[in-house]
Design a protein around this nucleic acid. Structure first.
Lengths: 347, 347
DNA sequence: GTTAGCACTCTCATCGATAGAGTGCTAATC
DNA sequence: GATTAGCACTCTATCGATGAGAGTGCTAAC
């Protein structure tokens, strides 16, 4: 049914359309490529491909445009990967090399690179799950005559801290005793299991409601509240203006409004987070507003845990081959960088 | 020269134009308001106002449009403040109340509120100057058999930390000795004065290049590198699409591309940071790309130090009265919130 | 099965005419 | 002298008609 010739023609049409954004006519295919076929033959094949649902016609006297089904076939079977260039590799390395110190910066820069090279919108979502860490101990450190610092250490080595005003008459030593008791009670508890009530219990029961307990309670809860959340980085939103399919201002507005809602972005990215690399084409996407967009998405893991997801969002007419190559490279490169950050932090 | 009647007419024209975005004709002014003047008289006055440079005419048979000079006069002398509504106050309070725990969230939410109420783009820039803090001491905390935590405490009570892998044969105690020496050498030094060379010196001279010095050096420098930078929060960028003056896609693109560059935003906001509230109208702005925009900007200080700047960016046809009221309210409200955050962190 | 040729369809840009909005000027009026 | 009614004039935006251009679909020939 879909013989080699049809596949080849479909591929050429899609690639032509991807690079020109204009409906592709039979003449163009027959002249641009040495297929040994006249435009009339191509025309017949195109008509067949349309019947099969791989192509669409904006109107009777226009050329053909790939349908979502066509893109899907292309992405799954026909796509010719476009290699990442030396210049791009150099760009990535130079941009990321000096950012390698802080995770936030790495992701922010990744978003920038991704949008720059793909010439589309890039989305990077990080996942910093603190909730699974275990409480190890708290410790009080001196600051000055009237203030001390409370440090919370987890089994992961993450230490949060908060400054506490010493109540009149209290000294650092008083708090050290309290720390011992708290540590005995909470050591090994997952952070997300330390609820207000539990803290309250410990404070009330053990300290018999002394004035110190209130201070400690406030301090510890404010630590809890500083729990880190996911972050979303966007890049290249202005790129969308260069795409002819978005010359309609309404569509751009819809997309940008959507991108402003962090929560929505997280939902969108969550869909494909399980598989390694996921390509969503046009109406395959469940979210309104990006149904004439495609998204290429890769999830990044470290030690089996999801650390981040990055994605390229653009028109269905996207340079899939290129985007996939870039994502692949970035994936590998980030693997190296992120584990080295872990090393730095560990060494 | 500019008598009361002219001022009144100018005010009416500007307010009409702000609310309709259409060039204002003499008939509209004479009919909408009880000035006791015919359109012909208004026409003469409008002609005068144009000669004076306060109005402009898109073409001979169109109504008048305010010039930058006209807006300037309006903002400085004619503007009638539009009070913030109860609903808006409730919105602000409900949104900010639950965000009051973390500074980042406060600013992010402020940006959201500001764009929501002003129906324009909002920009919030924070300034977290860590460089002026003084080194107080470092301390090592146990983590597990092969890792320890290095904590850096400043006079401000901010404690940064990093996990260090114990080299073979080394124990926590070895490091405590090192900490003492470092603390003696650096105590009281401003953080930004602690350069690589200085650390290097201390390490080389004192530890005589033992293998421990390298570890410490790496760890300390990685702390230094985690220096916090300014942050920029944007809100409501999609609002710009609702403004008829930006139906031209090119202008929007220019503005959004600009907003993507954090550095550029910081430059733009820096201009008016000294004065309390600053309004920049159209071509008064030095940055290309926003020269047909206006910006209302307020700087927020705590104890005399600049903590943040927030701004509303929109078309010159902006509801200045409204925006100023909202900014005023937010300014006061944030004052309360931010000092309370300081209190929480201190108690 | 392939191809040349041709009629047909649809879009897009251009042009001209027209309606509408608003001004500027003049002469009359308060 | 200030204000106003009236009117000619200008400029824009809109609509329909027209024609060029691109591409198809079909038929008949190879």
């Amino acid at each position: 049914m879909l013989n080699d010739r049809k596949r080849r023609i479909l591929q050429l049409i899609i690639e032509e359309y991807i690079s020109t954004a204009e409906p592709v006519g039979s003449r163009i295919i027959s002249r641009k490529h040495e297929l040994g076929l006249s435009s009339a033959t191509i025309r017949n094949e195109m008509s067949d491909l349309e019947d099969m649902g791989y192509l669409e016609q904006p109107h009777t006297s226009a050329g053909r445009v790939p349908s979502a089904l066509g893109y899907r076939l292309y992405v799954d079977y026909l796509l010719s990967p476009e290699k990442i260039t030396e210049r791009e590799i150099a760009l990535i390395q130079s941009w990321l090399r000096f950012k390698a110190q802080k995770l936030d910066e790495v992701f922010r820069t990744t978003a920038k690179i991704l949008s720059r090279i793909s010439k589309n919108i890039s989305i990077v979502r990080t996942r910093e799950e603190k909730s699974c860490q275990l409480f190890k101990y708290i410790r009080f450190l001196p600051l000055d005559a009237c203030r001390i610092i409370l440090v919370l250490v987890t089994d992961d080595g993450v230490a949060e801290n908060v400054v506490i005003n010493l109540p009149d008459g209290a000294a650092l030593e008083d708090f050290e005793h309290i720390a011992q008791i708290i540590n005995k009670n909470l050591s090994g508890t997952p952070l997300n299991a330390i609820k207000r009530e539990k803290l309250d219990d410990i404070c009330r029961n053990i300290f018999d409601n002394t004035f110190l307990s209130k201070y400690l309670f406030d301090a510890l809860s404010s630590l809890q509240l500083q729990k880190k959340t996911d972050k979303v980085f966007l890049g290249g939103t202005a790129n969308i203006f260069n795409q002819p399919e978005f010359k309609d201002i309404g569509k751009i507005k819809e997309i940008l409004a959507m991108l402003e809602e962090d929560g929505l972005i997280k939902d969108i990215l969550s869909v494909g987070e399980e598989s390694g690399m996921q390509i969503t084409i046009g109406s395959e996407n469940k979210f309104s507003g990006i149904q004439n967009c495609s998204m290429v998405q890769a999830t990044y893991r470290l030690n089996g845990q999801i650390v981040g997801t990055f994605a390229v969002l653009g028109p269905t007419r996207m340079k899939y081959g290129k985007v996939i190559s870039v994502m692949d490279y970035l994936h590998k490169y980030l693997q190296a960088i992120l584990s080295s950050i872990n090393d730095i932090n560990d060494s």
